[in-house]
Amino acid sequence: MSNDNTSHANSAKNNILQRLALAGLDANDVAAVKGKGSVDSLTLLVDEPAVELRQSFVDKMQASHAEVIACVKTDLQKTINDLLVRKQFKQLLISERVGWVKDMDIGDTQCLYFADNIESFKQQLFTDIDAAITTSHGSIADTGSIILRPDSVEPRSMSLVPPVHIVIVEEQSMHPNFAQVMKQEQWQTCMPTNMILVSGPSKTADIQQTLAYGAHGPRELIVILVAAV
């Protein structure tokens, strides 16, 4: 940007801040509202037994039209295998974290990694890929949400562009609510480029309040809920 633009931009900022200063709020006013409504003063933090959290998660997810398949850790590969045999996808995008899917006997399904930048296979991603499998960072019981923390292995569009998103959720990473997970993991110190809560398949009620699934994102969300034992 040229210097002219920069000084112009600075003047817009200064003018706005000057007008806000007309309110005459001072350090005392700021001190008076310190911490008001903040999370430490909330009653949001709860300590419920894991079994109830799990039930809440499953109920809310199903209410949001997601399919929930529960399994124990030792059965995870078999569970995914059965699902893929049932679904018969043509092209399946997989995360390197579940690289073992490549070795499965799942018929004609072709497995691919998100190995390069999106620009190199945008068209294929939008038109040919049927489904994607990713892991998750955690989950939230009271709203039935999964927490995704996309990275180079599981880029953002994996959970967005293909019509079906299969996501593996570890039961032990379940938190009672959003405020609690944020606090426990100190999110304010470690926000990645992008973080997403997903609570069901994409939907809309924009036509006369009639709910329809698969608006722009996945039509189907399949949650594989994995218990440690």
Binding site: D116, N117, P150, R156, T193, V198, S199, G200
Partner: peptide, 17 residues
Amino acid sequence: TYVNMISGPRKVDERDG
């Protein structure tokens, strides 16, 4: 369905965004 938290552009090692 989605709560999207964006804290920056694509990083060097990231593949989309």
